[in-house]
């Protein structure tokens, strides 16, 4: 994925058959990363790869889509006694169009305080190789995102995309900030028996 988005599409074509052809056979696949298949299907330059990617993406759901749309569940019985803010990542929002499904799931989590993130829909500045090739600009975007995250007073920032979390989390730990990043799936899977401690840094 990063290779394709950086212009190395021939490189990606060589790699892609591995994930797409050997992808799990069941009719429903749960994909935690919001990025992969939809973007692949959209960007795929060569037709054969595009067809395969589309075949896979037809039976692929983003986690919150799977839970809310396919399984019809909003309350997954999770327990997470923390103050949490949610960053709707660019690919969740504008490629996969998951809308407010993650928020609907999060609102049902027991003992959790969900805090609204200002300017939530602005990119955190990750953008794959953009973070390295335009590191200063990427950092400026990250700084504003972190300012908003820290301003909410949340202990935990969550999102449905591991790469955004790596970026925001990397910035927060560098600042020794009191906010950590936890994947949406970890929050939804955390329980009272587990102590609601998913993702302790």
């Amino acid at each position: 994925m990063p290779a394709r988005r950086s212009g190395w599409s021939a490189t990606t074509s060589r790699c892609s058959p591995t994930p797409t052809s050997s992808s799990p056979r069941p009719a429903r696949t749960r994909v935690r990363c919001a990025t992969s298949y939809a973007t692949l299907a959209r960007d795929a330059g060569d037709d054969a790869l595009a067809r395969r990617a589309e075949a896979v993406s037809a039976r692929t759901y983003e986690l919150s889509e799977l839970l809310v749309d396919v399984l019809g569940v909003e309350d997954v019985g999770a327990y997470y006694p923390h103050r949490v803010t949610y960053h709707p990542t660019c690919h969740s929002l504008r490629v996969l169009r998951v809308g407010d499904r993650p928020l609907r799931l999060l609102r049902q989590v027991a003992w959790m305080t969900l805090l609204e993130l200002p300017e939530a829909e602005t990119c955190c500045g990750f953008g794959g190789t953009f973070a390295v090739k335009n590191a200063p600009t990427s950092t400026a975007m990250l700084a504003d995102k972190m300012r908003h995250v820290l301003g909410t007073g949340a202990e935990v920032a969550t999102a449905g995309d591991a790469s955004c979390l790596m970026h925001i989390g990397g910035g927060l730990t560098r600042l020794r900030a009191a906010t950590r990043t936890v994947h949406l799936a970890e929050i939804l899977a955390s329980t009272q028996a587990g102590g609601g401690r998913a993702g302790v840094r």
């Binding site: 660019c90 602005t122 953008g127 794959g128 090739k133």
Partner: peptide, 28 residues
Amino acid sequence: YASSLCGACYDVCPVRIDIPSLLVRLRT
């Protein structure tokens, strides 16, 4: 390369220019 490909531009474009895809194409 001066874009994180966040897609906000495509969403607001009044003539629906798919700028992120064009950027990837130019990178390619």
